[in-house]
């Protein structure tokens, strides 16, 4: 393992998040078993108070996850000098099999936490808290995922060994060390462009429909298209958007665009993309509960609002990506 401050910070953050949720888990079980909204007993009052702790805790985990995600990518990028053949974060993440797995689970946990918070928000609008049991059940599902993400991260960092000079045998790691895939690769540009715009258009359309009508079916469609648009957007960034930003026909990297060399253009892309995806998925996560009487008015309003956010986010993302492509001096397609 590399003994590096950012790595220690990441492990600390994710370990602490797991620990906090694990300590809170027995209380969640108690909420599931003893909840009785009609009762005025002191136990019920105590359980209701506890719900505030859980929302705050999950919000904290969510924020920490977001920060950790960024730090993880930055650290991977910074560490690339340590490994022969690694040019940027992609190379570092490829040093062992856990790198990308850890990154993807982290993104997954981020979106799941966002969905939980959405459900939580909807639930706390209804006077009878109809989703309380379900919410805390989901929380118990989230815990092993969070622990798994921590475990992957730990395995990944444990498996990192820098190719450095040792006093006994000097150099030539370089010659012997197996070269790692320093570059990601993407789809060929043309199908990627088609997929990219098709998926984003579908997501924006679904979001607009749901924003207008807030129907149940359109909510599910919105969640599906949002997930699809996220994947297509990342594929697109890998396959062609990044190339245009780097003005280099072979540098497929989703991370370098976050660097100052490229004017932090990545943030402008990822921020609306992540917000829109989280909002779209959140709107979908609400739909199973649309028929609960106490949610009948507040839930469609909330999910329509999320759809609005998704529509705006995906549109900003598409426009910016197109702008970066058009403003570039690189020409991939004639």
């Amino acid at each position: 393992m590399l003994f590096q401050p950012a790595i220690i910070a990441l492990l600390l953050a994710s370990g602490l998040a797991v620990l906090m949720l694990a300590v809170a888990a027995p209380f969640a079980v108690q909420v599931i078993r003893r909840w009785d909204i009609a009762s005025g007993s002191e136990l019920q009052l105590a359980l209701e108070r506890r719900t505030y702790l859980f929302s705050t805790l999950l919000g904290f985990v969510f924020a920490a996850q977001l920060g950790a995600l960024l730090l993880f990518v930055f650290t991977a990028d910074r560490l690339s000098v340590m490994f022969v053949g690694a040019m940027c974060a992609v190379g570092t993440l490829n040093v062992n099999g856990y790198g990308f797995a850890a990154l993807l689970t982290q993104i997954g946990v981020f979106f799941l936490a966002a969905m939980w918070l959405t459900i939580n928000h909807a639930d706390s609008q209804a006077r009878d808290y109809p989703l309380v049991r379900l919410k805390y059940g989901l929380l118990l599902v989230l815990l092993p995922l969070l622990a798994g993400s921590f475990w992957l991260e730990l395995q990944y960092f444990r498996g990192l060994k820098a190719n450095v000079i040792t006093s006994c045998c000097g150099s030539l790691f370089s010659g012997e060390a197996k070269t790692i895939a320093g570059e990601a690769s993407g789809l060929p540009a043309q199908p990627a462009i088609l997929l990219f715009y098709a998926a984003l258009t579908a997501a924006v359309a679904a979001a607009l429909v749901h924003w207008r009508h807030a129907g149940r079916a359109s909510g599910y469609v919105l969640a599906a298209t949002s997930g699809g648009a996220f994947v297509a957007a990342i594929t697109g960034i890998l396959s062609f958007v990044s190339l245009y930003i780097y003005e280099h026909p072979h540098h497929h990297c989703p991370f370098c665009i976050l660097k100052p060399e490229y004017d932090y253009q990545g943030y402008a892309l990822y921020l609306p993309l992540f917000v829109a995806t989280a909002a779209g998925l959140g709107a979908g996560a609400l739909q199973p509960f649309a028929r609960i009487p106490s949610l009948a008015t507040s839930l469609p309003r909330l999910s329509a609002r999320l759809a609005g956010v998704a529509a705006v986010g995906f549109s900003i993302f598409s426009v910016l990506a197109s702008y970066f492509v058009l403003a570039s001096r690189l020409r991939l397609l004639e």
Partner: peptide, 21 residues
């Protein structure tokens, strides 16, 4: 024994990282 500059750089980096750690 050839010593590469990139290796020296890497070694420095990891030594500084290690000490900071």
């Amino acid at each position: 024994r050839p010593i590469l500059r990139e290796e020296v750089l890497r070694t420095y980096q990891s030594i500084f990282d290690w000490r900071e750690g």
